[in-house]
Design a protein around this nucleic acid. Structure first.
Lengths: 181, 181
DNA sequence: GTCTATATACAGATAGAC
DNA sequence: GTCTATCTGTATATAGAC
């Protein structure tokens, strides 16, 4: 599989950005085409239906999660610390894809919900060797879910819910201590 | 303010149920009217617009959170334990209202997002005296967010993400130990 | 490969009868 | 207070020109 056409990628970028900034309701085919700088017909050449467009975004997410799990396994600071730190939205491609797919899931897309559950499960299995028991693993996963949940609600807007900087360091230290046992 | 008409409440029940079971996209005025057993015109007598319907659900959530915070403050097992235990979906009125309003927020409703942030802030302030420091409070809030997030994604469907029974007890003990200091 | 024009369906909302 | 009928806007998708 050679690399996909540029136009196809920019359609996906536009769809993702609209989902994040304006929500699922606003992420129509028309709005996506406009944001990508193509016509509706042009978009439909690359993605023959709304479902195909969503599947394209889900596939992008899957590939980014592959990369991230490899990075996590090799992180010098430890897998748990890496995992929690990267659970705070940084506007990187993976974070953006997760939030966009979350919006699809809440909008009723079953495929998006399944993809998110798969993603979570893959992280959980990768982290299992780093937690002392099942409760510790639950703790790490749920704190991460909480961080992502607040990111997804805020959509990039600042609010007090997600700790940053030194506050985040202290939180991670607390979770690591509890998880290491 | 006397108690609202029964028909009004059953419209709100139907809207909530549709949001939970089928997502925001499916929770149309038409579907809500059908599920409530009234006509579209009948629904619009009670709620003159979609926005008014959403506001009705948000107001219901606010009232339920009032009650819950009072219960949490008086809980014999302690506020943190009560808070986490009730963060696992039990299909009670408060859980249902939270999940339904979460769906609205993801669908793009600014009012729903604001209501959820308000709710979270009120719980956070009620719990602050029960945590040893800011990181401990963050930990408790984020685990709760994580529990709710998974509930909201699952929509009542069973999956392995949310611990139950003895697993939940062990998780709560772990968080309490970390939060108490 | 990208465009315009159009078909079809359904959303939210109004008018007015009963 | 609840109904039916209808208006208007907009979403997805198709057809076919360039």
């Amino acid at each position: 599989m050679s690399r996909p056409p540029r136009a196809r990628e920019s359609v996906l970028d536009a769809f993702e950005a609209t989902l994040i900034q304006s929500g699922e309701r606003a992420a129509t085919m028309d709005a996506t085409a406009r944001a990508a700088g193509v016509s509706k017909g042009g978009l439909l050449y690359h993605f023959a239906s709304k479902e195909a467009l969503e599947a394209g975004l889900i596939e992008r997410l899957r590939a980014l999660v592959d990369d991230d799990i490899a990075l996590m396994a090799a992180a010098p600071e430890g897998a748990v610390s890496y995992f929690l730190r990267t659970s705070v939205m940084d506007d990187d491609p993976l974070d953006r894809a997760i939030i966009a797919v979350s919006r699809l899931a809440q909008g009723g897309s079953g495929a998006a919900g399944t993809a998110l559950r798969d993603m979570r499960l893959r992280w959980q299995e990768a982290l299992r060797p780093h937690a002392k028991d099942a409760a510790a693993l639950d703790l790490v996963m749920l704190v991460s879910d909480g961080l992502y949940f607040n990111n997804a609600l805020e959509g990039g807007v600042v609010s007090g819910a997600v700790p940053k900087g030194a506050d985040l360091d202290r939180l991670i230290a607390l979770v690591e201590a509890a998880a290491r046992g």
